Simulated scan of single mutants.
Amino acid sequence: MTITATAVPTSEESDGTVKYARIGSLELEAGGFLPDVVLAYETWGQLNADASNAVLIEHALTGSTHVARGATEEEGWWEQLVGPGATIDTTRYFVVSINIVGGCYGSTGPSSEAPDGKPWGSRFPLITLRDSTEAEARLADALGIEAWHAVLGGSMGGARALEWAVTFPGRVKRCAVISVGAYSTAEQIAFAQAQTLAIRQDPNFNNGDYYGGAAPEDGLALARRIAHITYRSALELDYRFGREPQHQETPLAAAVLAERGRYQVESYLDHQGNKLVRRFDANSYVAITEALMSHDVTRGRGSLEDALSRTTAEFFIAAVDSDRLYFPAQSRELAAGLPGDVPVHVIEAPIGHDGFLTEIGQLSAQLRLAFFS
């Protein structure tokens, strides 16, 4: 199989810009097949002569590959952690971030052209996190990376990092798993199902074949509202919004239900839903959400201890203390199942699950000491 990838960048001007690699066909865990897969990715820094300084950073559910600033000044989502002189110092390390298969930021996904020239739409196959790991391994091959100095991620990105360490133990020297456990729980699957159903029940969804017509924007926005509630803590929502009305709107002054005004928290959720609609594809949201549902490092590998015994990486496990989507207990369970004595680091943040993004700087010193000194 011939895999083609954009050449490893040779100047700083190439940092933080999207590149593409064709990795060939992909037979999928659930039985599906993709004949010609493209992966979009970004890189920062330079790969050294023996390719020992490569770091893979995995994005979360609706995240992009833009981890940090580069050729443009567009802010990245882990600026606190990545960049010149930062914990993951891009003057020392070659950082790679890859858009997951099924996504809508350049990798092959439901909106991509199928072999017949039409968007995949409803025909896009079911993918799992193991499928995404297999695809990423091929890109690593094309870039000349036999083993990662470290693989890191938060939330779904953490699940992807963990899958890398279990599926390809010889290719991951260090692994940071932040704000996620060893598998998706029944409750997490339940929240995910409510989101995908919100999209599927939108009148414009058309079983996923809406390209060229009206997109299921209402369903996607509702899915984001449901998700965002799980990303933030009750304490944070109460502190920011309480029971306050939105500006001059009157939640308790309306002759009929349809005319009542909104509370501030409702306006906030509306804003979050509308923001996602402007940048994300509804089919990709379904595809990636169901990939996250599949997250289970024990599938076909025995007990948790059996599955994790395959790993050879050094691990860094962390949780957000106020997380009500991926509870800290799940991080502790994961750490307990790993070989050796693995501590669980804690991000102290009232915000909830999204603390893995907004407060990642709290882990800078610990991560530098553990992986990047």
Results as ranks from 00 to 15, higher is better:
residue 96 V to E: 03
residue 100 I to K: 10
residue 74 E to S: 11
residue 100 I to C: 13
residue 99 N to Y: 10
residue 73 E to D: 15
residue 108 T to A: 01
residue 92 R to C: 07
residue 95 V to E: 02
residue 92 R to L: 11
residue 95 V to Y: 04
residue 84 P to Y: 05
residue 91 T to Q: 14
residue 80 Q to A: 14
residue 105 Y to C: 02
residue 117 G to F: 08
residue 114 A to M: 07
residue 113 E to K: 15
residue 86 A to F: 09
residue 98 I to W: 03
residue 76 G to L: 04
residue 102 G to K: 09
residue 115 P to M: 08
residue 98 I to D: 02
residue 71 A to K: 11
residue 83 G to C: 09
residue 105 Y to V: 00
residue 94 F to C: 11
residue 101 V to G: 06
residue 77 W to I: 01
residue 110 P to F: 04
residue 106 G to Q: 01
residue 117 G to P: 10
residue 80 Q to I: 01
residue 97 S to C: 15
residue 73 E to W: 11
residue 79 E to F: 04
residue 114 A to W: 02
residue 106 G to P: 01
residue 94 F to V: 05
residue 105 Y to D: 03
residue 110 P to H: 04
residue 100 I to M: 15
residue 109 G to W: 00
residue 82 V to R: 07
residue 70 G to R: 01
residue 98 I to A: 03
residue 99 N to I: 06
residue 94 F to Q: 09
residue 117 G to R: 09
residue 98 I to K: 10
residue 96 V to S: 09
residue 71 A to N: 12
residue 81 L to K: 10
residue 111 S to L: 11
residue 70 G to L: 00
residue 110 P to M: 05
residue 80 Q to L: 09
residue 109 G to H: 02
residue 102 G to W: 06
residue 98 I to E: 01
residue 76 G to R: 00
residue 96 V to N: 06
residue 97 S to R: 04
residue 103 G to D: 05
residue 113 E to F: 13
residue 96 V to A: 10
residue 111 S to A: 15
residue 85 G to Y: 12
residue 80 Q to P: 10
residue 83 G to H: 09
residue 103 G to F: 07
residue 75 E to W: 01
residue 104 C to N: 05
residue 93 Y to K: 12
residue 114 A to K: 03
residue 95 V to R: 04
residue 110 P to A: 11
residue 73 E to L: 13
residue 117 G to T: 11
residue 105 Y to W: 11
residue 101 V to R: 03
residue 73 E to C: 08
residue 110 P to G: 05
residue 84 P to I: 08
residue 108 T to Y: 01
residue 92 R to F: 05
residue 72 T to A: 07
residue 72 T to S: 15
residue 88 I to P: 08
residue 88 I to A: 07
residue 94 F to D: 03
residue 85 G to H: 12
residue 72 T to E: 11
residue 99 N to E: 13
residue 86 A to I: 12
residue 80 Q to M: 08
residue 116 D to E: 06
residue 100 I to G: 02
residue 79 E to M: 06
residue 105 Y to F: 13
residue 98 I to G: 00
residue 85 G to I: 07
residue 101 V to T: 14
residue 101 V to C: 07
residue 114 A to L: 04
residue 74 E to P: 08
residue 90 T to V: 06
residue 97 S to V: 02
residue 83 G to I: 12
residue 113 E to C: 13
residue 112 S to W: 02
residue 83 G to T: 08
residue 106 G to E: 00
residue 105 Y to P: 00
residue 93 Y to T: 00
residue 111 S to M: 13
residue 79 E to I: 01
residue 78 W to F: 09
residue 116 D to N: 14
residue 88 I to N: 05
residue 104 C to V: 00
residue 103 G to T: 06
residue 113 E to Q: 15
residue 87 T to C: 14
residue 95 V to W: 03
residue 74 E to W: 09
